[in-house]
Design a protein around this nucleic acid. Structure first.
Length: 700
DNA sequence: GAACCCTCATCTCG
DNA sequence: CCGAGATGAGGGTT
C-alpha cells in the first residue's frame, strides 16, 4: 500500500524525525464560498419506486395462521428488494379521500393523518412535575396547561394566549415541530444537564452506592420544563433530525421526537381514517435485544415485541398481534415509511450503546418464526433509496478496522508513524494529491520557556487516582471543587481555565484528571476535502464533551516577535488565544438545576497570559482541523504543572455528538482590529467555506 | 443488578 | 355518553 508514489515511509525513529515528509503545499480554506442551502432535511421523501399497484387486496392479516404466508426459508436467497411475496400494499384511500391525489405523499408526511388519543402530553407533564416535586428537584418551572380546553391543536396552530406558549424559550409550536437549531439546542441542553448530574453523582461519597441514572434525571427535567421538540408524532421525516445523526441514550430519541418510547422498540400512532382507527408504526429501534438480522446495509429483519425472550425467570410465550406488532402489520399493508434507528455497541465505551438514525424504511413482508416452541413475528424492513449513508458508513468503517477492505484512497495507515497510540490515517479520495506539505509530527507543545504564573504552583498529593469528591486534593480545589471530567473522561463544563494533574502530581497516570494528556482516543483521519484542502474527521462516533486532541506545535515567544521571520506573516497554522472568539453557550443552564450562581459557570476564557502556537513546522492532527462558523469542536485552555512550573495547553472537545466521518471543525476566531499594522489584519482574513447558515463569510 | 420512565389502554368519576 | 383524571400494563435501558 505504501510502497507507492510520492513519499517514503521510513521506519519511525524516536529522535527528530524528518522522514515523515509529505511534500505538497498545504491548503486551508481558500476557495470561493458557495453557501449551502439552509439546512433542510437532506433528502426528499420520494416514493421509492414507481407507481404502486392499486386497488384492494383482500384483508390480509398475517395473523391468519402461518399457512401460505411463507416463512422466508423458501425465498431466502432470492433478490430481496423487488416484489416480495408479501401482501400487496393497500392504498391509503381511506384517509383524506377527498384530496389524496396519489398514494405517494399521503402517508409520508406531506399530509398529516389525524392523531387520535394523546391530544397532548400535558397530563403526563403534570404528573411528572408532581412526581418531581416530591423528589429533590423542586425547582422546575410548572408545566402549565398550555392549551385551552377544546381547541384542537391542529385547528388552531397559531399561538393563542399571549404568553401562554413559552416555557424556557420553546413555544408550543416549536414543541410540535422542530428544526435543526431546536433539535441541537435540546440535545445540548440534555447532555449538559446529564454531564452535570453525573458530576454531582461522582462527587458523592462511595457509601451511597445506589446507581443513579443521570440520563433519566436530565430528561425528566427537560420533559417537565417543556424543553423538547417534535412532540407531535408523525410518519416520516422528523424536522431537524438528519439521517446519520447519532445518540447515546434512548432518552435523547424521546426529547427530539425521533422515537417517543423510552424503552419500547416500536413507536406507533393511532391514525384515524374515515371509518376506523388503526395503529401505524412510525419508528423502530433495533438494538440487539432480539436476534434481529442486521447484516445487510439496507435490509433489516426485525423481530416483534413481547414474548419474554431473553428474559430470565419469565416464561417464554407466543408474541401477540397487538400494540407495536399490530402497528407494524398495519404499516406493512399501508406501506407507510417507518424510521429506523439502529443501536450498537459503542466501541469507545463498550458498556453503552450508540444509536444511529438510519433514515426511512418500508416494511416489505412479515412472517412468523418459531423459537423454542413459541411464535415470533418477523418483519423485513427495506431502506428507501436516495438517502445519505448512515448505518452503511458504520459497516464500512468496521470493515476498514478489521482490515477486510482497506479505505479507498488510503495513502498512509498512520501518518504519525506510531507517535500516537491510535493511528491516524491519511486519505485522499477526491484527487491525486499525495499528502499535505512537510511537517514534523509531534503530539504536544514545544515550550521554549515555562509559562510564568505569579504564584508558585504545585501538584496535588493524592497517592492513587484523584477522587472527584476529595476536597483535600489541591487539583480538585483549583477547579473550584468540581472535578472537570466525568468518570468516563467527558468534560462537564467549559471553564475559564481547567487545572489538570501534571507530571509533578504523585497520583497515578490513570487519574481521571489528566484527560487531555492521554493522547488520541478516537481513530482520526486526515483527508482531502473537496474545497478546503485537508481536513480532519473521525472513524469513531464522538460524544459531546469528548477530548479529541490538543493543539500541538511550537509556542511562539511574543517578546521575540514573529518566529520564523518573514514567513510568520502567512503562517496558516497559528493558534492564537488573543484572537476574538465569538462566545457560545455549552454549559447547562443553572436555572434547570437548583443551582444559584450562574456566574460560577462562566464560559469566558480567562488566561494567565496569551498563548500563540505555530504548527507550521511541528504539529499534530489539530493543524488539519478547518474553520467553521458553526463548528462541532471547541477549544479549552488547560493548565498543568511540570517541575513546579505551569504550562498552558489548548485542548479540543466535541461540542455535540459527532457521527463518524463528519468533518471536525472549530471556530478560528478573528484577529482583533487593534492588531498592529492596521488593515493588514483585514487582509489576512480568508473567505469562509463552512457553508453553515450563520456563516460570517470571513475568518482569520 | 436494581431502579428507573414514557406511552397507551382501561377504568372511575362527575 | 363524554371528558378528565387515575391507575396499570408493557417494554428494556444504563
Amino acid at each position: 500500500m505504501e510502497g507507492g508514489s510520492g513519499f517514503n515511509s521510513v521506519p519511525p525513529s524516536n529522535s527528530f524525525d524528518k522522514s515523515r515528509v509529505l511534500d505538497v503545499k498545504p491548503l486551508r480554506s481558500l476557495k470561493p464560498v458557495f453557501p449551502n442551502a439552509p439546512s433542510t432535511p437532506p433528502f426528499v421523501c420520494a416514493p421509492p419506486h414507481g407507481p404502486f399497484p392499486s386497488g384492494f387486496t383482500p384483508f390480509y392479516p398475517f395473523s391468519t395462521p402461518q399457512g401460505s404466508q411463507a416463512s422466508p426459508d423458501n425465498q431466502q436467497n432470492t433478490t430481496p428488494v423487488q416484489m416480495p411475496m408479501g401482501p400487496t400494499p393497500t392504498p391509503l384511500r381511506a384517509f383524506r379521500s377527498s384530496q389524496a391525489p396519489e398514494f405517494s405523499g399521503a402517508f409520508n408526511g406531506d399530509t398529516e393523518p389525524e392523531v387520535g388519543g394523546n391530544e397532548d402530553g400535558h397530563v403526563d407533564g403534570q404528573k411528572r412535575a408532581a412526581r418531581n416535586a416530591r423528589g429533590s428537584n423542586s425547582s422546575q418551572k410548572k408545566t402549565r396547561k398550555n392549551q385551552e380546553p377544546g381547541s384542537s391543536r391542529r385547528a388552531a396552530p397559531a399561538p393563542k394566549g399571549p404568553s401562554a406558549n413559552f416555557v424556557v424559550g420553546i413555544s408550543q409550536i416549536e414543541r410540535d415541530d422542530g428544526s435543526r437549531e431546536l433539535v441541537n439546542h435540546v440535545l445540548m441542553t440534555f447532555d449538559a444537564l446529564r454531564r452535570r448530574l453525573s458530576q454531582i453523582e461522582d462527587a458523592k461519597e462511595q457509601s451511597t452506592g445506589i446507581i443513579k441514572r443521570p440520563d433519566l434525571k436530565a430528561s425528566n427535567i427537560l420533559m417537565s420544563s417543556g424543553l423538547r421538540t417534535n412532540m407531535k408524532k408523525r410518519i416520516g421525516v422528523v424536522p431537524g433530525v438528519e439521517v446519520g445523526d447519532i445518540f447515546f441514550f434512548r432518552m435523547e430519541l424521546c426529547v427530539v421526537g425521533l422515537h417517543a418510547q423510552s424503552m419500547g422498540g416500536i413507536d406507533y400512532m393511532i391514525v384515524r381514517g374515515d371509518t376506523e382507527e388503526e395503529p401505524l408504526a412510525v419508528s423502530i429501534v433495533s438494538s440487539g435485544g432480539y436476534d434481529d438480522d442486521a447484516e445487510d446495509r439496507d435490509v433489516l429483519i426485525y423481530s416483534g415485541q413481547g414474548g419474554n425472550f431473553g428474559k430470565k425467570d419469565k416464561q417464554a410465550a407466543d408474541q401477540k398481534l397487538e400494540r407495536g406488532n399490530l402497528a407494524l402489520e398495519r404499516s406493512l399493508r399501508r406501506t407507510n415509511d417507518v424510521r429506523v434507528i439502529r443501536g450498537m455497541k459503542d466501541s469507545v465505551n463498550p458498556t453503552s450503546k450508540v444509536y444511529v438514525y438510519d433514515g426511512l424504511y418500508k416494511i416489505q413482508e412479515s412472517w412468523i418464526e418459531s423459537k423454542t416452541g413459541c411464535n415470533i413475528f418477523k418483519y423485513k424492513f427495506v431502506r428507501l433509496p436516495g438517502q445519505p449513508g448512515a448505518f452503511s458508513v458504520w459497516k464500512s468503517i468496521q470493515k476498514w478496522k478489521e482490515g477486510i477492505s482497506s479505505r479507498v484512497g488510503l495513502i498512509l495507515p498512520d501518518l504519525t508513524s506510531g507517535a500516537e497510540s491510535t493511528p491516524v490515517s491519511l486519505v485522499n479520495d477526491v484527487d491525486e494529491e499525495k499528502g499535505p506539505a512537510y511537517f514534523t509530527y509531534f503530539s504536544t507543545l514545544k515550550y521554549s520557556k515555562s509559562f510564568n504564573l505569579a504564584q508558585p504552583s504545585f501538584g496535588c498529593n493524592c497517592h492513587n487516582a484523584c477522587q472527584p469528591g476529595d476536597h483535600n486534593c489541591s487539583c480538585v480545589t483549583k477547579n473550584g471543587g468540581k472535578f472537570p471530567y466525568t468518570s468516563n473522561g467527558i468534560l462537564v463544563s467549559r471553564k475559564p481555565l481547567i487545572y489538570e494533574c501534571g507530571p509533578t502530581c504523585p497520583c497515578f497516570p490513570n487519574c481521571k484528571n489528566r484527560v487531555s494528556q492521554t493522547g488520541l482516543k478516537v481513530h482520526l483521519e486526515v483527508f482531502k476535502t473537496t474545497d478546503k484542502g485537508w481536513g480532519l474527521r473521525s472513524w469513531d462516533p464522538i460524544r459531546a464533551g469528548t477530548f479529541i486532541c490538543e493543539y500541538a506545535g511550537e509556542v511562539i515567544d511574543k517578546v521575540k516577535g514573529k518566529q520564523g521571520g518573514e514567513e510568520g506573516d502567512n503562517d496558516e497554522y497559528v493558534f492564537d488565544t488573543a484572537r476574538v472568539y465569538g462566545s457560545f453557550k455549552w454549559n447547562y443552564e443553572p436555572g434547570l438545576l437548583d443551582e444559584e450562581s450562574s456566574s460560577e459557570s462562566s464560559e469566558e476564557y480567562k488566561l494567565p497570559s496569551d498563548l500563540i502556537i505555530s504548527a507550521k513546522n511541528v504539529g499534530n492532527v489539530s493543524r488539519f482541523m478547518n474553520h467553521s462558523c458553526s463548528p462541532n469542536v471547541f477549544w479549552q485552555p488547560v493548565l498543568y504543572e511540570h517541575n513546579s512550573q505551569s504550562f498552558l495547553h489548548i485542548a479540543f472537545f466535541a461540542i455535540r455528538h459527532i457521527p463518524p466521518m463528519t468533518e471536525l471543525t472549530y471556530d478560528y476566531g478573528s484577529a482583533g482590529s487593534d492588531e498592529v499594522g492596521g488593515n493588514s489584519a483585514l487582509n489576512k482574513k480568508k473567505k469562509c467555506l463552512c457553508g453553515s447558515s450563520n456563516c460570517r463569510a470571513y475568518f482569520g
